[in-house]
């Protein structure tokens, strides 16, 4: 494998966003790019990352390899990279280390690190392609604010999407709160629009602790996409460049 990333910042931010949710992960490398799928310890949430080969230049993967990496170790090494360093990942066949180099564009500074790999036999879950009943695209900062504000009142949030819009409601010991958003197009700045597409009304309840955790990825994209259908996990997707993405799936809570 040889994969060169123009900006180390993307990998730094992706790892920073998931390192508190999952610990040991397989980075599955093949000719379409680098994928990662992992569940949190309680098997309530699933992270699915895909860094397409187009996000790298150059990208070469002669044989499929799984790089078992502890994210705490990877975080320690990535801390040594500046956001605008050129980052290159290298690994041989049946590797026992993954090699990372950070080149600073202006000065002739080159750092090189090897991280020991682990054998991680992670069950790979089949994520079915779903036609979601409701898709909401909104500023990632707005979603972060909603989850943060409501998590102060309760550990669960009910998300209800109708043709009027989407409503986040929570009730807790000190009281209750709700945030309602309607379809809104910001003519000056499309990144601030709220787009809602709905084929049928949905209403589900989720853990706010996990949603707040997912919002660590807000730095990756100024928009976030929420996909909902009744009785299936919520999809929270942060789109990256070249159709790469970081997706979080969260199982719903049932029964009030």
């Amino acid at each position: 494998l040889e994969a060169r990333l123009e900006q180390a910042a993307m990998l730094k931010r992706v790892v920073d966003a998931i390192k508190d949710l999952v610990q040991d992960c397989n980075f599955d490398c093949n000719d379409s790019g680098i994928a990662l799928q992992a569940m949190d310890n309680s098997h309530v949430a699933l992270v699915s990352m895909m860094l397409k080969s187009e996000s790298f230049s150059p990208f070469r993967c002669d044989r499929n390899i799984a790089l078992g990496i502890n994210l705490t170790s990877l975080t320690k090494v990535l801390r040594a990279a500046q956001g605008d360093d050129i980052l290159t990942l290298k690994a041989e066949d049946a590797p026992d280390v993954v090699n990372l180099t950070f080149e600073s564009p202006e000065s002739d500074r080159l750092s090189e690190y090897d991280i020991k790999l682990m054998d991680i036999d992670q069950e790979h879950l089949g994520i079915p392609d779903t036609e979601y009943a409701a898709t909401i695209t909104l500023p990632s900062s707005e979603f972060s604010r909603i989850t943060r504000d409501l998590s102060a009142l309760s550990e669960s949030v009910a998300i209800e999407c109708t043709k009027e819009g989407v409503k986040f409601t929570c009730t807790g010991d000190i009281g209750n709160g709700s945030v309602s958003l309607r379809q809104h197009t910001n003519v000056e700045n499309d990144a601030k629009s709220v787009d809602i597409s709905l084929t049928e009304p949905v209403a589900l309840t989720f853990s706010l602790k996990y949603l707040v955790n997912f919002c660590k990825a807000a730095g990756l994209s100024d928009r976030v996409r929420l996909c909902l259908s009744n009785e299936v996990p919520l999809l929270v997707e942060y789109g990256l460049s070249n159709n790469s993405y970081l997706r979080f799936y969260l199982a719903p809570k049932i029964g009030d």
């Binding site: 879950l125 853990s207 719903p252 809570k253």
Partner: peptide, 14 residues
């Protein structure tokens, strides 16, 4: 109190 489900209930092993 609503009860939390696990992801495996929805995403089976392929």
């Amino acid at each position: 109190r609503p009860s939390q489900q696990t992801i495996g209930k929805f995403f089976g092993n392929p």
